Simulated assay, not measured.
Amino acid sequence: MSSTTPPPATAAIRRYRPTDHDAVYDICVRTADAGGDARGRYASDDLMPDLFAGPYLHLQPDLAFVLTDADRVVGYVVGTADTSAFVRAYRREWIPRLADRYPEATRPPRTPDEEMIALHHHPERLLLPELAGYPAHLHIDLLPEHQRRGHGRRLLETFASATARAGAPALHVGMVTANAAARRFYAALGFHVIPVPDPGPLTYLGRATG
């Protein structure tokens, strides 16, 4: 996702619009398997977007931006300037909104779908003390054919500037450790590792918003 060729003149970044919803969901699932295509991996292709894109589009649309190429949405960045406030809103609004789709389990998760749904019902997992100094966080995805063209850098800097204006001094990402391309991308943009005890499959990275 690093810049190797100049962005085409047709590519542009703009704020998210409600009509972009389905395109964002499609991009999310196509890049949700450590950067690879997760379509067919879960019972519903909406599961990953419902966790990692939809709540931001619903709760923080002012911090959602899309990359378009010839008016087609080919990438996006979503997130929040205040993770603590986002977690409270997620529990208050997003979990009830999807209650019929993802009822809370009465037993420990046994399948990949159940593991993801368990994450949905525990947004407080985002509140790690080591991340308190990096109150903003984000998710960024681009279709493969639009990676390595500088678009990711532009999207991330657009988001960072917006969160800085919202008062966040720093931001973080929780990336799947196995996604080596994402690690290189974030390193090139000045992110450093935030040590977190027992981070599971994730590596946490942070940097200033300015």
Rank of each mutant, 00 (worst) to 15 (best):
I194W: 03
Y204E: 08
L189N: 12
Y186W: 10
L189Y: 06
V78C: 14
G210A: 15
L131N: 12
F86H: 14
L127W: 07
Y42A: 00
H172F: 03
P123A: 05
Y56Q: 01
V66K: 12
T10G: 09
Y16G: 01
V29L: 10
A9G: 03
R154P: 12
A43C: 07
V87C: 14
R88K: 15
V87Y: 13
Q147L: 01
I27M: 09
C28K: 09
L155F: 04
F52Q: 11
P195F: 03
F52W: 15
T31I: 01
T5M: 03
R15F: 01
V66M: 14
R207T: 00
F191Q: 03
P199C: 01
P144G: 04
A34C: 15
I194S: 02
V77P: 08
S44M: 03
Y16M: 04
T68Q: 07
R153A: 15
G174D: 06
I140N: 09
H21K: 06
T83G: 05
H146G: 00
H192I: 08
P55I: 04
L47V: 04
A170N: 01
P61N: 07
R183K: 11
G190N: 06
G79L: 11
H172S: 06
T68H: 02
H146E: 02
V87I: 11
A136C: 09
R72V: 12
H172Y: 05
S2W: 12
G35E: 01
R165N: 05
R97W: 13
E130P: 04
E130Y: 11
H120L: 15
V66H: 12
E157H: 14
I13H: 05
P96K: 03
R14F: 10
E104V: 14
L205Y: 11
I140Y: 03
A181E: 15
P199H: 09
L57D: 08
H21V: 07
R184F: 03
T31V: 05
F86N: 04
P96R: 09
P169T: 06
I95H: 08
A162L: 00
M48I: 14
L202D: 14
Y42R: 02
L67E: 12
T111E: 04
A81R: 07
D33N: 14
Y25I: 09
L128Y: 10
V176M: 12
W94P: 05
R153Q: 14
W94K: 02
F86I: 00
P201W: 02
A180F: 05
A12N: 03
H122P: 04
D20G: 08
D50Y: 02
V77A: 06
L142H: 07
Y90V: 02
E157R: 13
H146D: 01
R41I: 05
